[in-house]
Design a protein around this nucleic acid. Sequence first.
DNA 1: AATGAATGAGTATTCATTCAT
DNA 2: AATGAATGAATACTCATTCAT
Lengths: 219, 219, 219, 219
Amino acid sequence: MSDHDLKIDELIDGEDLTEKQRKIIISAIESFAEKGFSATSTSEIAKKAGVAEGTIFRHYKTKKDLLLAIVAPMMAKFVAPFFIKDLKKVLDQDYENVEDFLRAMLENRREFLIKNLATVKILVQEIPFHPELKDLFKEHIALKVYALFEKLVEHYQEKDQIIQIPAYSVFRMIFSSIFGYLIARYMIMPEADWDDEAETERTIQFIMHGLAGPNSSKK
Amino acid sequence: MSDHDLKIDELIDGEDLTEKQRKIIISAIESFAEKGFSATSTSEIAKKAGVAEGTIFRHYKTKKDLLLAIVAPMMAKFVAPFFIKDLKKVLDQDYENVEDFLRAMLENRREFLIKNLATVKILVQEIPFHPELKDLFKEHIALKVYALFEKLVEHYQEKDQIIQIPAYSVFRMIFSSIFGYLIARYMIMPEADWDDEAETERTIQFIMHGLAGPNSSKK
Amino acid sequence: MSDHDLKIDELIDGEDLTEKQRKIIISAIESFAEKGFSATSTSEIAKKAGVAEGTIFRHYKTKKDLLLAIVAPMMAKFVAPFFIKDLKKVLDQDYENVEDFLRAMLENRREFLIKNLATVKILVQEIPFHPELKDLFKEHIALKVYALFEKLVEHYQEKDQIIQIPAYSVFRMIFSSIFGYLIARYMIMPEADWDDEAETERTIQFIMHGLAGPNSSKK
Amino acid sequence: MSDHDLKIDELIDGEDLTEKQRKIIISAIESFAEKGFSATSTSEIAKKAGVAEGTIFRHYKTKKDLLLAIVAPMMAKFVAPFFIKDLKKVLDQDYENVEDFLRAMLENRREFLIKNLATVKILVQEIPFHPELKDLFKEHIALKVYALFEKLVEHYQEKDQIIQIPAYSVFRMIFSSIFGYLIARYMIMPEADWDDEAETERTIQFIMHGLAGPNSSKK
DNA sequence: AATGAATGAGTATTCATTCAT
DNA sequence: AATGAATGAATACTCATTCAT
């Protein structure tokens, strides 16, 4: 189910990193997530990674390069593949109805979030301050993901499973609901006592009925 | 409709601020929103405000105090009043159905966002890094707003306008949908060409049907 | 016995000081003694004195003027008078022998020290860094005190109570012994359990025998 | 005679210091001695040493650490060894009488002072403001030096060369007299025209007779 | 006489980055 | 590849002093 998600290690090992490089990346992820990019000093990262300050700059020309080295592959390797694989399944009738698709997507994103919590935090927090990140994000999400998603919506709209509203509105609503849930669950109130199964189901049903429109009970 | 929202100026003038103090606050809001709290230097704020750097510290003992002076009153003065006033209206039958209430709330928050865009950006971006902010937020939202909201949900659930699921789930879904919309509209893609009226309506309908559940067409 | 020593208050009231001025001086003495002149900030003094920062500078043009206002009168008013009065007594045969003179001087300086501990501390600590202070000190000690002291030594040398060595050597030895005692007693180890009477006597005897020379037992 | 005293250079080279570190220490000693610790700025030290200001903080985490790096080894390496070596000589009958011991000690401390004048000045001036320094000093002087000194006094008291008064009184008197002399000679009035040989002799004789008591001529 | 807001130079310390080893 | 000493600009914050009220 989540075989298309890689572990952090895989992310990092993907390119041939030295042991030191791995330690630097891991330390940087921890610190960036905890205190923010610009509140984290390179000397702090070096200390936590157990390497000399100079070593960081041997591998990453600037501190910002280090940030990009953490955040860019996440966008490149993980966001896109998911939708591409899953869209195929939808079109190939693997998911006969929206509900199954939503459930699959939610669980898939949940696993991704759990594995990449820190990195996602960094991404979300730093995007507003770094135009390059914004551009990277737009490129990956807007052009690759959203384009596919649009077809998917049309697919279900033809089957009358989704109300006739613009695809971008559907996208926004699904996105808001699923990520609203995951963010609350894993980033805002991870310490609360969640009944994951029930909450997931409610979220799916909320989206389902919301998108089905007034004739939802006809089904 | 939005007479209970104050302008930034009012916020700032609320307490007797000197002219210099006002300039400092305004400059700080601008810079914090644009580059983030810790990437903004006090010398930069001073320069932009046209005051000496020392002047900042005469009024705000630390840079963090300056942040709190910006963010704290927003939570104290704006978040709470809205719900308290509107809840009354609901219980006094001013809003006979959920739909009217949601619409009022969405418009009210929209106006608030438009007026306080920068400050809200700062709040959202800095909350993860400052436990005091998190605490302030919890205190205001969780204790004051959420408690009232719960009653409201029960009120509509008794009238069968909302499906029988836990209030916190309802809260999360409404919150996700409305703020998902507003954030996309004003913070992520403000430059896009939005049909506000239609989009608002779709969002309201999405929530309405989502919360009405399978029997929504009965109505 | 100590009627020629004035209290701090008198020192301060000597010149007509306003209430605020008095508080400033007292606060400054405390802080200068505790942390040193240059480690003490004027704002700190103002706070401790309960006055506005500007008030200090209304009375004392600079921080250094404040230091001088504390230290200068002590030298002017206290160091000189003592010796002048006591020298007269010696020459008038009030003290027939060295011993009585030494005892009187030690007790007199002890009282002075106890009353002006903080101010003396400041004087001692700051003299090395302020040439004006050094000059003031030399003027008072070297020219007034030492000159008189020289006569006194000669007086006792003529009476064969003091060995025939240069007056400045005698001065140095007496000074070292008495102030060595008082400094140890009141500044270095004030918390120790001192038998003042015995220790005073030992010090006097030490000086007496030291200055009497090899024939001291003849007496 | 003074082979157990090391030069500043040795002090500094003792631990492996880089060239820059040496320059920093030397500049700091000069400035601290001249203007006092807290009136000396790190930028001033850096400039005088010809290094970047940051370099100071690479080697000494804080300005105070720099002070301790200067003052602590002086206490550790120089104060203790002297007495230990010399005490042995006394007990081994190398110094048959007090006079020889005093003379040796005075000359030894004189050489030490001449070589370490600036550092001693710093120590003396800063001790009142830094409890850690006071503690270090007490540890070295009180526990190591004084304890040995006590035995020495008893040794001579048994031989009837020193009057029967408490060892701490003897200690104080010798200390006052010798350091009173050295301080006057090298720190207060170094510019005066001193006849060192005669003055030393007078000081020794003063102590000798002072401690011998009334029966001093019996000898 | 007294205030306290305002200043700009200065403070100790940290920063990201470079470079010789 | 890795180090860590070295840097100089930047950092948040403090300073003594001025001045309009």
